[in-house]
């Protein structure tokens, strides 16, 4: 168990914790109880970690083709992915949590994509952005293109489109956020993670 000062994160935890607050064992004074409850919340460590992770995913600076342009647009001020805490594109895989596969994976690039994924520290997630990353897209019959990122890596979120609009990428990242926050739900009933 971990104590946590109440900010927006604490509020989210409090919503699903119906148990008695420990301060109620110590005193009967309703004013004190109310004040302590307002500032301190209790939750399992894993849950708090997941909340922290889901609210500040660091994507890797990594574009493979035209979809990367939309990813850059999403990171820019007009669409402003930073509103959700995902704007810190890291130039090193060792500092990144999520790999946005934005573009066509060619057979020549595939070993390096895989190596970059392996260099990312756990826990890590993969977002396949665009039809190329989902299935090979318009180049599926080509001699040089891998038909889909899931031939190489475990993909968490698929964003369809050619290219998907920045809004779609933001939606995909928010779905990933739900997935990170509710790992159990996703394992058992994936449809419940989508609100």
């Amino acid at each position: 168990m971990v104590c946590l000062e109440e900010r927006s994160i604490g509020m989210e935890i409090k919503k699903d914790l119906q148990t008695k607050h420990p301060v109620e064992d110590l005193t009967d004074d309703p004013v004190i109880i109310e004040q302590v409850k307002r500032t301190i919340t209790l939750a399992p460590l894993e849950k708090i970690l997941n909340l922290a992770r889901s609210n500040s995913l660091w994507p890797m600076t990594f574009g493979l083709a035209c979809c990367a342009i939309e990813m850059m647009a999403a990171g820019g001020p007009r669409f402003d992915l930073a509103r959700f805490g995902y704007e810190v594109f890291r130039p090193s895989p060792r500092q990144a949590d999520v790999m946005i596969i934005a573009g066509t994976i060619t057979k020549k690039m595939a070993p390096f994509v895989k190596r970059l994924y392996e260099q990312m520290p756990e826990p890590k997630w993969v977002v396949a952005m665009g039809s190329c990353a989902i299935s090979g897209g318009p180049f599926v019959d080509s001699y040089s293109v891998v038909p889909g990122a899931d031939k190489l890596l475990p993909v968490d979120v698929y964003i369809p489109g050619c290219p998907p609009r920045p809004d779609a990428l933001i939606h995909g990242m928010l779905l990933l956020k739900e997935k990170v926050k509710n790992p159990k739900v996703v394992e058992e009933k994936p449809w419940k993670a989508i609100k």
Partner: peptide, 13 residues
């Protein structure tokens, strides 16, 4: 692959 007699089958499953 840019030779005219190059044949390619495959890609999609």
């Amino acid at each position: 692959p840019l030779r005219k007699d190059f044949q390619w089958v495959g890609g999609r499953e």
